[in-house]
């Protein structure tokens, strides 16, 4: 081999909007030298069959994520607030459109 495989192309996360009116959704990752190349590669890799009308690429390093270990501390507080849901409130059936 001529030499070591170089390690300078960073990882990007790719998000695709499937069509107007929908959110961008994460579809995977890829390697590219910069954002512009990442967009082009994302176009070639993730939208070969009209899967999207818009693409975001984000440096993987820039993504901050909650960890699975924090699940309870992070998400449990929303579990005991049943009054945030419409079904918590008893309304007589005779009342229309509510």
């Amino acid at each position: 081999m001529s030499g070591e495989i170089k390690h300078e192309w960073p990882l990007f996360e790719v998000f695709v909007r499937a069509k107007r009116g929908l959110n961008h959704v994460h579809v995977g990752s890829l390697r590219a030298a910069d954002h512009e190349m990442a967009l082009h590669h994302a176009r070639d890799l993730y939208t070969r069959r009209n899967e999207g009308v818009s693409i975001w690429v984000v440096r993987s390093d820039d993504v901050v994520a909650s960890g699975p270990d924090e699940k309870d501390a992070f998400f449990a507080p929303s579990g005991d607030k049943v009054y945030r849901h419409p079904t918590y409130y008893a309304i007589p059936d005779s009342v229309p459109h509510i």
Partner: peptide
């Protein structure tokens, strides 16, 4: 460009 997840992208366009 360092960091543990940074391998070289082997497949250029």
């Amino acid at each position: 460009a360092g960091g543990e997840r940074h391998g070289g992208a082997v497949f250029s366009a």
